[in-house]
Design a protein around this nucleic acid. Structure first.
Length: 421
RNA sequence: CGGGCUAUGGCGCAGUUGGUAGCGCGCUUCGUUCGGGACGAAGAGGCCGUGGGUUCGAGUCCCACUAGCCCGACCA
């Protein structure tokens, strides 16, 4: 992508209402645009990050044998009345029709997926089954905040699994838990598995995946090394107590919940009478699990977890592009055309090797280009200038390092390929 | 949903006791610069959130509404 053609621009001005690092940098860098409180449009750079996260999630869930579907966002009121959630879920957006009917705008999809699966699953032989989707969710939050971390419209991956037995459900639940940790690691995040309340989903405890950062809104009781962690809303221990696992002291930190998994047991299956015939010819109610990952929230969380005072530092796996190729201006016409030619060659050469390059070919000053490169935060910056050409080289500077080095121009593509592995 | 703050060119802001709106960024043109957001000159761009009211006169004072943000509650 040639940056001169990118329709978004960076801004030197900090948005007046940016309340968090992610809102500030994502807006200034032109990744997202706020439309209303808690509602954002995703722009080319931001959308590329979101798509990469979604791809990671798809790859990992497909390995689990889950099948991707896309359910309706507009949902029938009757289904929500059937589960008793039409009047109890206060974040539910209720949409009136001109016909006088009302619909729900999906905050989650148990009310859709359960009857959906029922229409295909009648025998124990049809189980287990797991389906997922990546879709916009709508929740009428009284107070949206923290940029992309808590919105009224947001991207979410929701997975639902259906099992004949509680044991089978629990085994799958543990597999999803492991898969989620893989997903977050691949996104460059360190997530803690945290015991939490089941909320209105289930009376049982559930597990949350928390990324510890000051921007979070959850309080989590955790120890430095152990895997033990509890959401403070359910914690039986308190700060300063010893970790039952390894005796380490527990401390309270704030975290962002990037995922949550629930053992729903037969709650929704009962509401919709989702049952199968078992091998003895008897009807048995199915048990369910549901598992969510906030995709748009992940984008914001990564920014919160990985930035400095100049901008974002994208982990390469989710970076909108891998390389920021920066061509500097020269007043000398011949030098300028050499800079252009070398840049073009590297640009095309890298793309030919599958390396995604954002090429800053704009007619802008060096300072402006460097500042923008830091703000946008691609993992590697390559500079082509009069100075580097004199050495037949390209300047190499990783975003998370302060020192730049010169690399021979002819070696540059191989070296970048090496970094990608 | 309670409490508070804010609303002025695309963005960030100033605007005195009420007298007819200004700065920075960005944008256009020209020239000079060129390795960390360069400089000069000349331009374009505003019913001051909306609706009422007070006044000879309202960006400014009063009321209502709307929107954004903050604190809290809430967060299936």
């Amino acid at each position: 992508m040639r940056q001169s053609r990118l329709f978004t621009k960076t801004s030197k001005n900090v948005p007046h209402d940016a309340d968090s690092v992610n809102a500030k940098y994502l807006t200034q860098g032109g990744f997202v645009h706020q439309e209303m409180a808690g509602v954002y449009s995703w722009l080319p750079l931001g959308l590329r990050v979101l798509r990469k996260i979604e791809t990671i999630i798809r790859e990992e869930l497909d390995k689990l044998g889950a099948q991707e579907i896309l359910m309706s966002a507009l949902q029938p009121k009757e289904s929500w009345e059937k589960t008793g959630r039409w009047d109890t879920v206060d974040v539910l957006f209720k949409v009136p029709s001109q016909t006088g009917k009302e619909y729900a705008l999906g905050p989650t999809h148990e009310e859709i997926v359960t009857p959906l699966v029922k229409s295909f699953v009648q025998s124990y032989k049809d189980l287990p089954v797991a389906v997922y989707q990546i879709q916009s969710k709508f929740r009428d939050e009284l107070r949206a905040k923290s940029g992309v971390l808590r919105g009224r419209e947001f991207g979410m991956k929701d997975l639902y699994s259906f099992h004949l037995t509680q044991e089978d459900l629990e085994a799958y639940y543990r597999k999803v838990l492991e898969t989620y940790l893989t997903i977050f690691t691949r996104c460059g995040l360190e997530a803690k598995v945290v015991e939490a309340s089941g909320g209105a989903f289930t009376k049982k405890f559930s597990h949350e995946f928390q990324v510890l950062t000051p921007a979070g809104e959850d309080k989590v009781l955790t120890s430095e090394h152990g895997s033990f962690a509890q959401n403070c809303e359910i914690a039986t221990l308190k700060e300063g107590d010893k970790n039952p696992e390894n005796g380490e002291p527990l401390f309270c930190s704030t975290g962002v919940e990037v995922g949550n998994i629930f053992d729903l047991s037969s709650k929704f299956a009962e509401a919709f009478d989702l049952a199968v015939t078992d091998e003895n010819g008897e009807r048995r109610t199915v048990v369910m699990g549901c598992y969510g990952v906030g995709t748009t929230r992940l984008v914001g969380t990564i920014v919160e977890a990985s930035h400095d005072d100049k901008g974002i530092i994208w982990p390469i796996a989710v970076s909108p592009y891998h390389v920021h190729l920066v061509s500097l201006r020269s007043k000398d016409e011949e030098t300028q055309s050499r800079i252009n030619a070398v840049s073009q060659e590297i640009y095309e050469g890298l793309w030919a090797e599958g390396v995604e390059v954002l090429w800053d070919d704009r007619d802008a000053s060096p300072g402006e280009k460097f500042a923008d490169a830091d703000l946008i935060g691609l993992p590697l910056r390559l500079v082509v200038s009069e100075k580097t050409l004199k050495e037949d080289s390209i300047e190499w500077k990783p975003r998370n390092e302060s020192e730049a080095t010169l690399i021979d121009t002819e070696d540059i593509i191989e070296k970048v390929k090496g970094m990608m592995e």
